[in-house]
Design a protein around this nucleic acid. Structure first.
Lengths: 349, 349
DNA sequence: CTGAAAGCGCTTACAG
DNA sequence: CTGAAAGCGCTTACAG
């Protein structure tokens, strides 16, 4: 029996046809001719009985579980994972697939990660999605190569597993362009100091924009520190102390921006009148709760989750191998709040 | 075929027994006598082949899917949901159950919520967990009553579905007691103004502690506003403006506390020297990124998720109906950071 | 102590 | 255009 106790034979009986026909109609089996009238009768009977197929029976017969696994780091710590899950889920539902989620602890060993993947394989998922907490290059667990898989927010060092990541360069370009268009020419960049793709790529974007607008690059305006509130605060204090301070700050992430807010407050600088700030990440909890709200760049977590499932479905459907010219990059849109304004014409040194 | 293509017959063949025996041994079927020697042979064969049962076949045969559904509001917006998921997942895995998650939009209609539940039922879950984003009294979707279910962070208005919620009174008692023990007697309470259980129960806890320590209640020190940063800021400004200002603030949540930090900064009050603050929620992103770190009360999300699954398992196992003397309340522990100190002996008015 | 056999509810070649 | 039948991989009464 399936959902609520009605099976395919009940539908067949009510419609006055064989279960074969019911199956064909309800699954739209290709190359099967069933009269329009019979189809209608079957559908009506199914609807009337509230019939839904028994998934276990179908899975057993077709050898497809209808499950796809999502292995995600630190589900509980950041809302980022939540948005990946949402995107993946919505896409999964559209294909009548069920998402099974497993949490991975970030600092765990390679063998622990193999175990996470194994958990999913034991649950008979048809494919697995592997999401990291922030954009990283990783070497994937060995057993991940033996199932259809897609990486989210991570790229495979060996370039064999398809991957989707944020367009970091583009995001930085968007942020800095926003500042330039507001009239700023002295724009500081509080960068992360980890050797991760975002660090390098956002710097590239920053430079591109300045170059494109003929603004000379002042190396004093680019500094690096761990991407936390406190280091962000310290960096901002330093950078805002000098005579020729920047009129705007582009921050590697919202937490560093939070530190910059504090530095500005201590120096008596009003945001956005005396200082404009743009962050990165769009962590609602921070960005929306600062005064004024932080204008920042959003990471496309939902979209990456969605893209990953769509790609998996194509993979499972045997559609042409994904082109392997590197990972797919998704747009990072600007979220405008209140932290950017035109620079003051006469600001005091 | 099951995982990696090996089925029960392969194990049977290798062990030189029937598949019946393999099944009995691997499932530890009660009341079945199999010689120790045979058992060992079977287990060894299974291990050697890396055998795992085909879950679809088992589900079909036993009419148990091994799936439990979790319907959670706003998975993508707060890390709270993430911790519920984690707790539920760990417990589910311990019982060899797989968790299937569905996101519910918070403001959606009753019929939308029925649809969410239906999605889960269609996926043939054995039971469902229903989690709200914050402690609420709700009227559960009608179809939720037709499956084994447990509420998380919510109570059923009609008291029929088992539920687990945070011990709000206890959490407030812990917070305010911490302040009293640090030496404070004038403790302000920035409360929420929504008519939700937490609002009322945290106030009860606040009063209890003052009463217990013989501290008279000053109604000027209890104010209500929406539980956001800005209203928290405004309330704190008001309360800290007067002559006889409190030396400590207990805030309904971390966001209001964030507002209080800003008010303190504007008034030149150092935290914790001039003003101690305790929050509620333990939202890492806020609490850990404030200066100094915010001492706050944690909500037992992980534990609620865990408890809910354990309860569901007992329900499915037909164990005694849960006692219906209201929802189960779980502890809200204090997380100490740097925002509490003894009050200054001579503070200026 | 062990095994042969039925059957869970579907899908799918195949026959007509 | 429609249906009878096999079979997916297990579990479980039942027989011996």
């Amino acid at each position: 029996m399936a959902v609520n106790g009605v099976g395919i034979r009940d539908v067949a009986r009510l419609a006055g046809v064989s279960i074969t026909t019911v199956s064909h109609v309800l699954n739209d089996t290709p190359n099967t001719r069933v009269s329009a009238e019979t189809r209608a009768r079957v559908r009506e009977a199914a609807a009337q009985l509230g019939y839904g197929p028994n998934r276990a029976a179908r899975a057993l017969r077709t050898n497809r579980s209808g499950l796809i696994g999502l292995l995600s780091e630190e589900i509980a710590t950041t809302p980022h994972a939540g948005r990946i899950i949402l995107g993946a889920q919505d896409a999964a539902r559209a294909h009548d697939l069920t998402l099974v989620i497993v949490n991975a602890e970030r600092e765990s060993s390679a063998s622990a990660h193999e175990d996470y993947v194994q958990t999913l394989i034991d649950r008979q998922v048809e494919a697995v999605l592997y999401a990291t907490m922030y954009h990283r290059r990783i070497s994937v667990p060995a057993n991940l190569r033996r199932v259809p898989a897609v990486l989210i927010d991570a790229t495979d060092e060996d370039g064999v597993v398809p991957a989707v990541v944020p367009d970091e360069v583009g995001g930085a370009v968007t942020a800095v362009t926003h500042l330039v268009e507001a009239g700023h020419r002295r724009i500081g960049f509080l960068n992360n100091d980890d050797d991760v793709p975002a660090t390098h790529e956002r710097l590239i974007g920053y430079r591109q924009v300045l170059h494109r607008h003929g603004i000379p690059i002042d190396e004093h305006l680019v500094r690096q520190a761990p991407s936390e509130t406190l280091p962000g605060y310290a960096l901002a204090r330093e950078m805002l102390a000098g005579d020729d301070r920047p009129t705007a700050l582009f921050c590697y992430n919202d937490r560093m921006a939070m530190g910059a807010y504090r530095a500005a407050a201590e120096l008596g600088l009003d945001i956005p009148r005396d200082l404009s700030i743009v962050g990165f990440d769009n962590q609602e909890l921070i960005a929306a709760n600062l005064f004024p709200g932080l204008t920042t760049v959003a990471l496309p977590h939902y979209e990456m989750g969605e893209w990953a499932v769509e790609t998996l479905v194509r993979l499972l459907g045997g559609e042409a191998e994904l082109p392997h010219d590197g990972p797919t990059r998704l747009d990072c849109p600007l979220v405008t709040r209140g932290s950017v304004a035109a620079p003051q014409p006469h600001r005091k040194a």
